[in-house]
Simulated assay, not measured.
Amino acid sequence: MKIRNFLRFAAAGILALSFTACEDDNDSSLGASLIVTESTSGSTGGAVTISQGSSLVFVWDARKGDTDMDLFSVSVTGTNTPNPLPTSLGGRNFPYDIANADDETYIDTLIFPNAGINLGVTSYSFTVTDKDGNTDNVTFTVTVEADATPMTNEVNGAFFHIAGSLEGAYDLVNGTVVGASQPAASKDMENTDAAGDAFTGSWMAANSTMFVKDNSYDYANATVEAATSSFAAGTASATVSNPTVGDIYIAKLRGGSTYAVIKIVNVDPSDNTCNCGNTGKITFDFKK
């Protein structure tokens, strides 16, 4: 009899624990959800890069969970922080105590027209809070960068053995070959191989042009900014020895602020276009 009563009480205890567990599960509520999209980039959060002068357009869709939404806040910190925050297209100012009309579904748009006015990093954070205190948040880290200036002017150049009968120098400013009798000021690349020696394609600047070798440079997508940075990071020299196919050289032209990016296409010691004793020709492409 005692055993039967013990089993009865034990079963009741287990049942009570089961009900308690179910009640605990029911106590947890589903919070509000938030989706934010920066419409110009298509990003839904995280890192975004824009060009200087650009604007940002954020579109969001906030939905209630088990409890109506209560507050929508927007926080902006960093280089391009506006004061005050702009008003949304729906006419809302932030923080926004969500009205009854929006407390189940709140869709709106916020435009930052001066988001790209200064170079630097700005953080944009959007938070929805429901009446139970549950929150959902989306943050964007936006970097404003200067516009890149593409080098779209590409020229095919060449010069010959300096001791041959054809032009042994090249003018990178005007994109033309230069003969031995022409002024040194126009000779950005002048072959340095001696008469009777095999052609190597080596050159030196007869003016103030300087060169930096950088085979990691992205020639296909060459920009002025990348060329400037590459040249500054390298060791500049007025001479280039034994260039090979695929080599890339950044040239700072004649002591100024103009750059050319040179890619070696071919070095042919046996080229006899000159029909002379000192053969050889180097061919290259360059952008500026």
Results as ranks from 00 to 15, higher is better:
residue 135 T to F: 06
residue 11 A to Y: 04
residue 126 F to M: 01
residue 73 S to V: 08
residue 93 N to C: 05
residue 75 S to I: 13
residue 17 L to M: 11
residue 263 K to Q: 13
residue 256 G to H: 05
residue 163 A to S: 15
residue 112 F to E: 08
residue 184 A to K: 10
residue 79 T to K: 14
residue 18 S to V: 13
residue 256 G to F: 09
residue 62 A to Q: 02
residue 94 F to T: 07
residue 134 N to Q: 08
residue 35 I to R: 01
residue 189 M to K: 02
residue 1 M to G: 15
residue 263 K to W: 02
residue 53 G to W: 04
residue 154 E to H: 05
residue 158 A to C: 09
residue 126 F to G: 00
residue 22 C to Q: 10
residue 89 L to K: 10
residue 205 A to N: 06
residue 154 E to C: 05
residue 68 D to C: 07
residue 178 V to D: 03
residue 175 G to T: 07
residue 102 D to M: 06
residue 36 V to Q: 00
residue 102 D to N: 12
residue 98 I to T: 00
residue 65 G to M: 00
residue 117 I to P: 02
residue 112 F to L: 05
residue 118 N to S: 15
residue 218 D to A: 15
residue 188 D to S: 12
residue 48 V to H: 00
residue 189 M to G: 04
residue 113 P to E: 12
residue 284 F to G: 07
residue 272 N to P: 11
residue 255 G to K: 03
residue 38 E to W: 00
residue 17 L to E: 07
residue 279 T to P: 01
residue 170 Y to G: 02
residue 172 L to D: 13
residue 257 S to Q: 10
residue 202 S to I: 04
residue 18 S to L: 15
residue 19 F to G: 14
residue 232 A to N: 03
residue 288 K to Y: 10
residue 271 D to Y: 07
residue 137 N to M: 04
residue 229 S to Q: 11
residue 231 F to D: 04
residue 212 V to H: 06
residue 97 D to S: 14
residue 261 V to H: 00
residue 150 P to L: 09
residue 248 I to V: 15
residue 37 T to A: 00
residue 256 G to I: 09
residue 213 K to R: 14
residue 78 G to T: 06
residue 271 D to A: 15
residue 42 G to W: 04
residue 57 V to T: 15
residue 164 G to H: 13
residue 59 V to Q: 00
residue 8 R to Y: 11
residue 109 T to D: 02
residue 231 F to N: 01
residue 281 K to Y: 06
residue 205 A to E: 05
residue 237 S to H: 07
residue 246 G to T: 03
residue 85 L to Y: 05
residue 45 G to F: 00
residue 30 L to K: 02
residue 249 Y to K: 02
residue 30 L to A: 09
residue 150 P to T: 05
residue 22 C to Y: 10
residue 164 G to R: 09
residue 266 N to D: 14
residue 235 T to A: 10
residue 94 F to R: 04
residue 133 G to F: 02
residue 40 T to K: 08
residue 127 T to D: 01
residue 47 A to P: 08
residue 55 S to F: 09
residue 112 F to S: 02
residue 256 G to Q: 07
residue 207 N to M: 14
residue 34 L to N: 00
residue 145 E to F: 08
residue 203 W to A: 03
residue 60 W to G: 00
residue 38 E to C: 01
residue 251 A to C: 06
residue 169 A to T: 09
residue 245 V to H: 05
residue 229 S to E: 14
residue 100 N to L: 11
residue 258 T to S: 13
residue 187 K to T: 09
residue 232 A to S: 11
residue 34 L to K: 00
residue 134 N to A: 12
residue 193 D to G: 03
residue 259 Y to Q: 01
residue 128 V to G: 01
residue 111 I to M: 08
residue 186 S to C: 05
residue 41 S to C: 04
residue 220 A to T: 14
residue 119 L to A: 14
residue 226 A to R: 08
residue 167 E to P: 12
residue 130 D to Y: 06
residue 172 L to A: 07
residue 87 T to Y: 07
residue 182 Q to K: 03
residue 282 I to E: 08
residue 46 G to N: 07
residue 71 L to I: 11
residue 14 I to L: 14
residue 103 D to N: 15
residue 53 G to Q: 03
residue 256 G to A: 11
residue 263 K to R: 10
residue 65 G to V: 05
residue 232 A to G: 01
residue 57 V to F: 00
residue 9 F to M: 06
residue 263 K to A: 07
residue 283 T to Y: 08
residue 50 I to G: 10
residue 177 V to F: 08
residue 222 A to L: 13
residue 64 K to Q: 12
residue 182 Q to G: 09
